[in-house]
């Protein structure tokens, strides 16, 4: 199981052919209290870089892009009632959606944890 990152602060945790997507602890900290999450529709086909979801803090709306191409297979509906999970537990309970990865090669093009950490120094 590997976790990769985008320069836009999404993570994707690869579990076989599925990726679990969310925003990094750094991103949730920067955004502040999340008050609303717009989840993608299950079955939605995304190209790498497409807008997949939107998270809203008190002050701002931010797009969550698809880190890789694929099909949305599951969304974290707990976020509808409790968007703050992204703040309190961004990497586990605060995941946003799962994607069936269309092209495993795209994963290789993403940042590893060291490269991402360097970006947010």
């Amino acid at each position: 199981m590997t976790t990769k990152f985008t320069p836009d602060h999404e993570y994707i945790r690869v579990e076989g052919f599925t990726g679990v997507v969310g925003i990094t602890p750094y991103a949730q900290e920067a955004l502040g209290d999340i008050v609303f999450v717009e989840l993608p529709e299950i079955g939605k086909v995304l190209k790498k870089g497409d807008e997949a979801a939107v998270v809203e803090s008190v002050k701002a709306a931010s797009e969550i892009y698809a880190p890789v191409s694929g099909t949305v297979t599951e969304v974290n509906s707990a976020l509808s009632g409790e968007p703050g999970l992204i703040n309190s537990d961004p990497e586990a309970g605060g995941w946003i959606y799962k994607i069936e990865i269309a092209d495993a090669g795209e994963i290789e093009g993403l940042l590893d944890s060291d490269a991402y950490a360097e970006l947010t120094l």
């Binding site: 836009d8 925003i23 502040g32 939107v54 998270v55 002050k59 709306a61 797009e63 969550i64 892009y65």
Partner: peptide, 13 residues
């Protein structure tokens, strides 16, 4: 992730 709505200090956030 990218700021999008017209809010007065999104970019800064």
């Amino acid at each position: 992730m990218c700021p999008r709505a017209a809010v007065f200090f999104i970019r800064e956030v």
